[in-house]
Design a protein around this nucleic acid. Structure first.
Lengths: 232, 232
DNA sequence: GCCTGCCTTTACATAAGCTTTACATTTCCT
DNA sequence: AGGAAATGTAAAGCTTATGTAAAGGCAGGC
């Protein structure tokens, strides 16, 4: 039913077996790593995990260290587990980027409920990563080369224009508020009377219109902008 | 620094005062509701909350009920609090849509860490994604795309019209007073002889009637308006 | 130091849409 | 029925958001 892919990093082999069975029944696919090093490798591999269950006490690389290193490159949600009921541990874990924390021994149904809650919430995130190539209608955007083409003609975009277009394309069909654009692209809150975003959008439209007639960026007055999905 | 807006729903006034102070220092803006009904109202008002802290034991409407009703229209993250350490409660809360659960008495720093973790994760979402899509009869409303369709035909609504319709649809079957509409949509009290709401409703009706005959918005004279539930 | 490119600000025209006005119509009360 | 109050709505008025050209400013490169 759920078909979500989880990674469990825990050195207690008996325990992992048990959890594995329990979570399989719930409809999750579960991979297991019995030490921190392997766990980190798997977590950062090409395999996409929807959620990582991470024990704190681990051989080779402890849970905090795994989390810290994972967070340098990945935003995968992490639920930490620990034998200690130590508050300090909890707080530290959450501070350095864990999404939830559960002290052993825990009720399996609580674990299951917390997993479900996290997965449910994560499903709301836009699926596209910022690394992915995007193609919508006659517009193609390639993050690796910073290149955008419209009807096969390359466009000369500035870095900011590129980022704005990318954000709009990732969220195509959806409203993207000016404040979101400002925060994500310019790294600052939208101030009153700040017209920068309008200008970048205006410039984008001008460049996009060079090789294509159809309107691509729609204004939602009082709200923001929206990249129109191809109607064909 | 954070500047995040939280809503605390808890009837223990002393306790809320304390938490309020504590969280203010952390840089959060905190609104407080001392009963479930008020809390639900505030949570569904035009004010956007980044996170709701919800006690289970509440006068008028208990925490579970508040959460259930909130979730019919909003996906705002909720952290539940409870005096009981009851696992069953926790699981129930998480099942019906809470994002986290903390048993009282808790370490303030743990609360703070969990809030931070949730807010951090939620910051990755587009702003308007915390509102549910609504569908009643042949009318569909989608906050993320700011799109309303009637019998599968898209309607061109203004921002205000959209918000009025959303409010009416959220409270379908119930009376929504003009003052409520004015406060939640326009952000101001309804003044005498103010006909704005009437006009917005009038325009809405006109647009809705384009593709559908049945009356959708009923006038309750002297009181307000009501979105009629589909009779089929 | 001086380009050069790009982001931001300024300024103004324009358009969108919210509010007000005015009047017709309906409802309710006595 | 008569009248007051509330509502429906077209149209005018007004406020504000937006589009965009042009000027200003800032930083990196040569």
């Amino acid at each position: 039913m759920t078909d979500k892919h989880l990674l469990l990093i825990d050195d207690d082999i008996e325990y992992t077996q048990l959890l594995s069975e329990y979570l399989s029944v719930q409809g999750y696919t579960l991979d297991i790593a019995n030490d921190g090093e392997l766990g980190l490798n798997m977590a950062t591999s090409a395999t996409h995990y929807d959620l990582i269950l991470l024990d704190v006490m681990l051989p080779k690389l402890d849970g905090f260290e795994v989390l810290k290193r994972l967070r340098t490159s990945h935003l995968t949600p992490v639920l930490m587990l620990t034998a200690k009921g130590d508050d300090y541990d909890k707080i530290l874990g959450l501070e350095i980027g864990a999404d939830d924390y559960l002290a052993k021994p825990f009720n399996h149904r609580e674990l299951s409920a917390r997993i479900k809650a996290l997965v449910r919430r994560m499903a709301m995130l836009p699926t596209n990563s910022t690394q992915q190539n995007l193609k919508l209608g006659d517009v193609e955007l390639s993050p690796s080369t910073q290149q955008v083409t419209c009807a096969d003609h390359p466009l000369e975009l500035t870095g900011t224009e590129f980022s704005v277009l990318q954000l709009l394309m990732i969220n195509h069909g959806k409203l993207v508020t000016k404040n979101d654009i400002s925060e994500k692209v310019l790294g600052r809150k939208l101030a009153a009377f700040d017209r920068s975003i309008d200008m970048h959008v205006s410039n984008l439209r001008k460049k996009l219109s060079t090789y294509s007639q159809e309107e691509k960026i729609k204004t939602l007055r009082g709200a923001g902008y929206q990249y129109l999905v191809a109607t064909c």
